[in-house]
Design a binder for these strands. Structure first.
Lengths: 292, 292
DNA sequence: GTTCCGCATGAATCGATAG
DNA sequence: ACTATCGATTCATGCGGAA
């Protein structure tokens, strides 16, 4: 069984207890500026970089030279403009020694609704990839799947509504035509991920859907490797990492979240807040063949 | 007939001849920074911001207070890292007086093929929206798209809570009144655009597809307004703007591109390098009601 | 077991109003 | 003048109960 450590406390301090060069993948979604005020108090956009840099410094220390840091973030609108703190953060983290290797796009299919005179709905978030070294571990095969199989499975039980939904134009673009997928032999992923946010009626909704950390864990780690989430929240990343046979470290500052995750892990897997479906096929064509 | 002006020359100089506050929409795809000496002479990533700022200063001058500037750009990978010149450009343009209103994502469905050991294919580009003023013209109805098919089932039978305003219980102040949607056939798009890259086998490879400038021209201008592309290239934006009944200004520094566009406009519309297909509207959900 | 359908939910944003 | 709170607007999804 792979080790699980969850800590209650401020990650800036807790991280100092973690040995250097010991983590293979950091994947986290910190509180965004001025958002989730009710739970996390809210860091203002002006202070965000200053607040985050000491944490990213510790993250740089604990990450293995071959490891990867995935940072999920999106700037909010302030007085009609997008804030620039994320841009400044990237620039400052490079000065710390991080390499800004890539920027993935998480396209949120069911984004927050609303209507404004000078703005459309925001349907994407940044997934910033940072590394310590140009030579990092990446297991591309783990997220590649023969497109034929996937398309066949997809099409076998495709209802009429599914077909029509797939041709939906909402999102301001071309409707995708499922039949186009059939012609492809293999699906190579790109740096754009199409995932819906999970909006179930549980009390604590996850920051991102399970398949998001799952995809990056498969891409950047192997079984037995160590995954760290310094802003654990409701624990999605940690739970997925455990189920995927990775050693897991989670840090959370709020007792209620910490206890919720702790209680979840204490119980039997069958009553964990998440149920794992071995046959699950995600929206980006990933087939999970073996879990646990 | 709407005026068409195309200039041969360096846009930094040519722009000085254009009156201030005279342009409704600037949409352009400047040469990306590149190490190689390509067709445009290759601006290195280190010099990119310095090179672009005098141009953006002129663009700020010629744009109407209610106008919009759409900048299509994507940073290159240099020594395993994404360059930061686009981030720096945004920060510096704000110091010039631009408002960074929004960042649209252009998701390129059929992006350039390839495989690398530590990188997936790049399937998106930035479409940065800048404005002079918080109050700019935006004609959202012109780009509305068919609503998702969920609505047909959803609206068949209205429950009691659907008939009145139903406020969310989480205290977000978010509520809904489903009965407002009964007449609704279309929805507003998001800030993620799904467009296939057009692979025309011309010499110019960097051109974006017609529907990209078309979408922004519909969104930010009306007939008779003025559209400017200071890096005209093969002329996609200018041709689309003319077909849509907008006054058009194009600037190009390379004689061969300039002459190609010039010759295209001299000939009959039927032999223009682009053919306008009324059926295309179905591809991305836009209704083209009147062309020319 | 399937499929169908009702329904709550969501890292939002703006402008007006109140302190 | 300046900030803080409030009301209004909006669409796709997954869950769970019903057919």
């Amino acid at each position: 069984m792979n080790e699980l450590q969850i800590y209650l406390g401020d990650c800036k301090e807790v991280l100092k207890q973690i040995p250097e060069n010991s983590v293979d993948l950091i994947i986290t979604s910190p509180p965004y500026a001025d958002q989730r005020k009710a739970t996390y108090g809210g860091i203002s956009p002006e202070n965000y970089v200053e607040w985050f840099l000491p944490i990213s410094k510790q993250l740089l220390r604990v990450l293995k030279p071959t490891g990867t840091f995935i940072l999920n973030i999106k700037e909010k609108v302030v007085q009609g403009e997008r804030s620039t703190y994320v841009l400044e953060l990237i620039i400052e983290m490079r000065k710390q020694g991080w390499l800004w290797t890539e920027e993935f796009i998480w396209h949120k299919k069911n984004c927050y609704p609303g209507k404004w005179n000078n703005r459309f709905r925001d349907a994407w978030e940044r997934l910033l990839q940072f590394n310590k070294n140009r030579n990092f571990n990446m297991y591309q095969e783990a997220v590649m799947v023969p497109m034929g199989d996937w398309a066949q499975n997809r099409l076998r039980n495709l209802s009429e509504t599914d077909k029509r939904r797939d041709n939906s134009k909402v999102g301001s673009g071309f409707g995708k035509n499922i039949s186009n997928w059939l012609e492809r032999k293999e699906a190579y992923p790109t740096n754009v991920l199409h995932l819906a946010t999970e909006c179930n009626n549980k009390k604590h909704s996850a920051a991102f859907p399970e398949c998001l950390p799952e995809w990056f864990i498969r891409l950047f780690t192997q079984e037995g490797n160590t995954v760290l989430d310094p802003f654990m929240g409701s624990g999605t990343t940690c739970i997925v990492a455990q189920k995927m046979g990775r050693a897991t470290i989670g840090i959370e500052i709020l007792p209620e979240y910490f206890e919720m995750v702790q209680n979840g892990f204490k119980q039997q897997p069958s009553v964990l807040p998440f149920t794992w479906d071995n046959e699950r096929k995600t929206n980006y064509g990933l087939k999970i063949t073996k879990i646990q």
